[in-house]
Design a protein around this nucleic acid. Structure first.
Length: 583
RNA sequence: GGUGCUGUAGUUCAGUUUGGUUAGAAUGCCGGCCUGUCACGCCGGAGGUCGCGGGUUCGAGCCCCGUCGGCACCGCCA
C-alpha cells in the first residue's frame, strides 16, 4: 500500500500515530529554518512539516519539489503549535521522517486552486488538471450522489434498469441524428439514440412495467451553455398509469433528491401550471417561480386614449417591478435597449413611475392623464414606489419579450438566488406545432404522445387545438424533465402519423416494429426523462452544464483536449465505403 | 445560417479611443534571505512571433481586409 491514510482524515485524535500519505504537492512554504508542504489527494489537504534542526538534508530535498509532484511521505502525526481553524486537518501536521518521489510534474499551465487563474479554454484543454480542483471535484461527487440517490429511489419503487442499444435506426422526426457507418453493411448507417424512446415503450409491451435507465443520449444540434451533443438522461417509463400517477411518482423522486442531497423538504405538492397559463403569466413554458412579477393583461383596459402604439396592438401586457420607481433615465434606457435587441424582439418599452408620494410619471403622459395611469397601474397591481413596464404588439412576440424583461429584472433585483429552488409542473402542452417553413404539423413532444381524450375529436378538423397528455418538470426557469402518456392503440397512432404527414409506407418503414408491437397487447403506458446534467447543475448552482460533466465538449461540439472530431484515414473511409466530398 | 463579445509574458489582464523611443501590472516560474507558515513575507531575475496572413503608412499591438480559435445568444434542439 502506498498509504495508510488519506490526506483528509487525520485529526488530533490520531496524534503520535505513524502514518504514510501519498498525494500531490499543492503548495510549499519555505521559511528558511523549516518548510511546510500541503499534500493533496481527493479527500483533502494535510500539512507536512520539515525542520532543518531535525533533518537538514531531508528538508533541503523537499524544497526542490514543485507543485503537483506526486510523493509518498512517512512520519508521525503531531499537534500543531499554530492551528489552522480553516482546515479540517488544521489541528495536526505530519513530522516527516522519509519521503519518496513517486512522479515529478512539469509546472501546470494554471494554478490548481479553488479560484484558478486559468481561463475556460485552457482549463478545458487540460481538463484532467482542472478536475483536480475542488469546485469540479465537488460537482462530480454531487453528480455521483444524485445518480446514486436516483437509482436508490427508483429501485425502492420497483423500477428496474435495462440497457438499450446505442446503435439504432435513424428517424426523421425531432433533432438531427448522429450517424454511424456500418462496415459490414456497406452504405448503411446506424444512428445514435436521441433518447431510448421506442425501446422503453417496447419494454412496456414486453411487460417490464417500471423501467429506468441513466443513459447517454445524442443530438446533433447547435449547442449552448446548457446543451451538449451527448448528455445524460434519467429515462423512465411506467405501464398501467395515468398522467397523475407519473407526476406523483416523479415529484416523489425530485423531492427525494432535494431531501437526500440538499436537506430541503417541500411540504406541499409542486404547483402545476397549464402551458397556456404559463405563457400568459410568464411568457414562457419554463417559468422561473423564484420571484413574482407576473404579467397582467391590459389589452382590454388600456386602449382608447389616442396612443396608436397601444390602440393598434393585439396584446398589451404589464409587469410591475416592485420598489423600482427611482430607476434613472439611464437604467430605463438600458432596459429599453435590452428589450429591443433582436434576440429579445420587443418593439419598445413604456414605463409608469409610481411615486412614493402618490404622483405618477410615464413615457405616455402625453396621451394618458394621471388618473388614467393610476387606473392602469391599479389593474396591473402596482402600488406607490413601483415601476410598471408596459409592452404592446403581436401577442406571442410581446409575451416572449416580456419574459426576457422579467428574467432580466429578476437578475437585476437579485431575485434569482442560487440556493432557492422552485419546482413546478407545466402540463397540457399542445400536441402539435405548426411549422410555417415546411407547412406541416410537428409533434411538440414526439409522435407517440397521446392527445387528451376530449380533444381527439379535432384531430382532423383543428389539430392545433389538441392538448397532449404531456408534462414538463421545471425548476428555476430550466426544464429539467419532460414526458407524456403514450399512444398505445394502433389506430390512434396511425391517425397521428397521418396528421404529421407520414404515408402509411413511411410510418411502417420508420416505426413498423413499434406499430407491430402494439398489435400484441400493449398496455397503457407513459414516462418521463430528466436531464441529469441540468439537474446536477441546478443543484450545484452552476450556470453551465459543462461544469458538471467530467469531459465536456465546447460550444462547437469539439473536444479540445483530445482534438476531435477529426479526420480519419483513407483506409478507414474505404473500409466503410465512404467518400468525403467537399461542398 | 445569423448577431454580439473576445484573442497581448506560463496565466489573468491593462495598453487599441488619438498609430510614434525600450509593450506594462499582478500572479506563476527561477535565484537569494527568513524556524510556525497555511494566498507566508522580503529582495532580485528571467520571461513577448501583441492568434495567423495580407494591406495602408516614414512608422501598426492600435487603422483596413481576410482567416483561425474561444465565449454568449437567436435560429435549431425538449
Amino acid at each position: 500500500m502506498y498509504r495508510t491514510h488519506t490526506c483528509g482524515e487525520l485529526r488530533l485524535s490520531d496524534k503520535q500515530k505513524k502514518v504514510t500519505l501519498s498525494g500531490w504537492i499543492q503548495r510549499s512554504r519555505d521559511l528558511g529554518g523549516m518548510t511546510f508542504v500541503d499534500l493533496r489527494d481527493r479527500y483533502g489537504l494535510t500539512q507536512l512539516v520539515f525542520n532543518m534542526d531535525t533533518d537538514a538534508s531531508l528538508c533541503q530535498e523537499v524544497r526542490k519539489l514543485g507543485r503537483e509532484c506526486v510523493i509518498q511521505a512517512e512520519g508521525m502525526v503531531a499537534e500543531r503549535s499554530n492551528k489552522n481553524p480553516k482546515m479540517p486537518t488544521g489541528d495536526i501536521e505530519i513530522q516527516v521522517k522519509r519521503f519518496s518521489i513517486l512522479n515529478s510534474s512539469v509546472t501546470p499551465p494554471f494554478t490548481i486552486e479553488d479560484e484558478s487563474d486559468g481561463g475556460d479554454e485552457l482549463r478545458m484543454k487540460y481538463r484532467y488538471l482542472d478536475l483536480r480542483r475542488n469546485p469540479l471535484k465537488n460537482n462530480l461527487l454531487l453528480r455521483h450522489q444524485m445518480a446514486y440517490e436516483t437509482r436508490s429511489y427508483l429501485n425502492s419503487q420497483e423500477f428496474i434498469e435495462v440497457e438499450t442499444p446505442v446503435l439504432i435506426k435513424s428517424t426523421p422526426e425531432g433533432a438531427r441524428d448522429f450517424v454511424v457507418p456500418s462496415r459490414v453493411n456497406a452504405g448503411q448507417f446506424y444512428a445514435l439514440p436521441q433518447s431510448p424512446q421506442t425501446f422503453k415503450q417496447l419494454l412496456m409491451v414486453a411487460g417490464y412495467d417500471r423501467y429506468m435507465q441513466i443513459v447517454k443520449c445524442f443530438r446533433d444540434e447547435d449547442l449552448r451553455a446548457d446543451r451538449q451533443p451527448e448528455f445524460t438522461q434519467i429515462d423512465c417509463e411506467m405501464a398501467f398509469v395515468h398522467q397523475e400517477d407519473i407526476l406523483v411518482m416523479f415529484e416523489g423522486m425530485v423531492k427525494h433528491l432535494f431531501k437526500a442531497i440538499k436537506g430541503i423538504e417541500f411540504s406541499s405538492a409542486f404547483p402545476r401550471l397549464t402551458y397556456a397559463k404559463a405563457l400568459e403569466k410568464y411568457g414562457n413554458d419554463k417559468p422561473d417561480l423564484r420571484f413574482g412579477m407576473e404579467f397582467v393583461d391590459l389589452t382590454g383596459s388600456a386602449k382608447g386614449k389616442g396612443f396608436s402604439v397601444l390602440d393598434s396592438a393585439a396584446y398589451i401586457g404589464a409587469i410591475v417591478a416592485p420598489g423600482c420607481t427611482e430607476y434613472t433615465r439611464k437604467q430605463i434606457d438600458e432596459l429599453t435597449d435590452f428589450v429591443k435587441k433582436p434576440q429579445v424582439g420587443g418593439k419598445g418599452l413604456i414605463y409608469i413611475r409610481m411615486g412614493t408620494d402618490g404622483s405618477v410619471k410615464s413615457s405616455m403622459d402625453k396621451f394618458y392623464t394621471p388618473e388614467d395611469l393610476l387606473a392602469i397601474a391599479a389593474v396591473a397591481g402596482a402600488t406607490a414606489g413601483d415601476l410598471v413596464f408596459v409592452m404592446a404588439g403581436d401577442k406571442i412576440p410581446t409575451l416572449k419579450a416580456m419574459s426576457e424583461l422579467r428574467l432580466e429584472m429578476g437578475n437585476r433585483l437579485g431575485l434569482r438566488k442560487k440556493n432557492v429552488f422552485r419546482p413546478l409542473w407545466v402540463v397540457d402542452f399542445p400536441l402539435f406545432e405548426w411549422d410555417e417553413e415546411t407547412k406541416r404539423f410537428y409533434a411538440m413532444h414526439h409522435p407517440f404522445t397521446s392527445p387528451k381524450p376530449e380533444d381527439v375529436q379535432y384531430i382532423e378538423s383543428d389539430p392545433a387545438r389538441i392538448r397532449a397528455n404531456a408534462y414538463d418538470c421545471v425548476i428555476n426557469g430550466a426544464e429539467v424533465g419532460g414526458g407524456s402518456i403514450r399512444i398505445f392503440e394502433e389506430q390512434l397512432q396511425k391517425k397521428m402519423f397521418k396528421t404529421l404527414g407520414f404515408t402509411d409506407e413511411e410510418a411502417k418503414r420508420q416505426f413498423g416494429f413499434l406499430m407491430d408491437a402494439f398489435r400484441y397487447g400493449a398496455p397503457p403506458h407513459g414516462g418521463i426523462a430528466f436531464g441529469l446534467d441540468r439537474l446536477v447543475s441546478i443543484f450545484a448552482g452552476e450556470d453551465s452544464i459543462r461544469d458538471v460533466i467530467a469531459f465536456p465538449k465546447n460550444n462547437a461540439g469539439r473536444d479540445v483536449m483530445a482534438d476531435c472530431p477529426a479526420e480519419i484515414s483513407e483506409e478507414q473511409l474505404k473500409e466503410l465505403s465512404i467518400k468525403v466530398v467537399k461542398l
